[in-house]
Amino acid sequence: MTTIARGRRRTVSALVALLAATLALAGCGTRIGEGGRFGVVYMDAQGYYAGVRKGMQDEAAEAGRSIQLLELNAQGDASRESTFVDTVSSAKVDALVLSPVSETASIPAIRLAHRSGVPVICYNTCIAEEAAQEYVTAFILGDPVEFGRLLGDAAADHFLAEGITAPKIGVVNCEQVEVCVQRRLGFEEALFAKVPDAEIVANQQGSTIDEAVNVAERILTAHPDLDAFFGQAGGATLGAIRAVQARNKVGQTVVFGGDMSTEAANALVDHSILKGNVDISGIAVGRMAAETAQRVLAGDEPEEFVLPAPIELYTTPEDGQEWLENHPDGLP
């Protein structure tokens, strides 16, 4: 076994031991989560998930409930996610709230939670539809097609205002998850409806900022006359912005992207590169997740499977400034 593998195994073992000890303590009369104990999985470390955490805590606090969140940043690792879900399922948490790493690889863990009697609530992403209908109680989702459509419409309006009738666009994607595929379909539908001669000249994966910078720079090298990037999520958007800056394309190549953050809001205030950003607030989703989990805990399951999360479009420097004022802690 390699040193990395041994280190990873020790990390997971320590996590399992910590969770087991915490849950045993809670089960012996010192119940920390009087309002419920929820296992929560964040897909990665992007700021959106910090917003989800804050939203869950805020909703519980305002409702006068004390909840316990047993949390994991899965770091995009389905096996790490599975180990955590197995532990909290065995401990009989009141609900599992998660953004699954994979539509398919996450199914066994979610099936185990369901069969252990733990209600499962997806947010942002979920498992394949047939399995979700069987094992998941509710799915909190900002419509990804509408997400993309809002950006495509804003991009089309920008090109028309600039007199660009056949823009060349590079996509920096997160299409390892289905919602990002749907975002692209919505973007293309709205864009081509208004600017039929637009062309998607590249579509490459770059989910994290570092990956996205490299991908966007390669696209700019291959297409030096690129008019715009579409960043499908936060890391892709910020990476595209940084690549435009690094390649001295400010004033030529603009960015339309997803997921607000302090950096994105400041870029929108500057408005030289970022021209539009669509956001599904992590805080709003976290509030919905806590409220839904509490309802399920009380025996009041939602009638609808998909619970729509609000979607916001930001296109002006004033929009960016307002976001900064409303989010002084930087959490989206």
Rank of each mutant, 00 (worst) to 15 (best):
D86T: 14
M43I: 15
G35L: 12
T125A: 12
S102P: 08
A161H: 03
Q68N: 07
A154V: 11
E146V: 14
S99H: 00
Q68A: 08
T83F: 02
G76Q: 15
A155H: 01
E146L: 14
F84H: 01
R111C: 11
I107W: 12
G36T: 07
T87R: 06
D77E: 12
G148H: 06
V85C: 01
V118R: 00
A45C: 07
P144V: 07
E129G: 02
I121R: 01
C122V: 02
G117A: 08
G39R: 01
V118Y: 03
T30L: 13
H114D: 10
T83R: 06
V101D: 00
K54M: 05
V85S: 00
P100F: 05
A24D: 11
G47W: 01
R80S: 15
E81W: 00
T22N: 14
D153F: 09
T87E: 09
R53M: 06
A60V: 01
A24K: 10
G76C: 13
V88C: 04
E134F: 06
A63I: 10
G76H: 13
D157G: 10
L19G: 03
G64K: 02
L72H: 04
A20R: 14
L23W: 00
A63C: 11
T137M: 11
H114F: 09
Y123E: 08
Q75R: 13
G55Y: 02
A128L: 08
S79R: 10
A113Q: 01
E134M: 09
N73V: 15
V118L: 07
D157E: 15
A63W: 09
I32W: 09
D58V: 14
G148Y: 04
P108Y: 14
T22P: 00
L23T: 06
E34I: 13
A132L: 05
L19T: 12
A109Q: 11
A91W: 07
R111F: 04
Q57S: 09
D77K: 04
D94T: 07
R53Q: 15
D94C: 04
F38W: 05
R80E: 12
G148I: 04
G35S: 11
F139T: 01
L151M: 06
Q57G: 07
D143R: 08
Y49G: 08
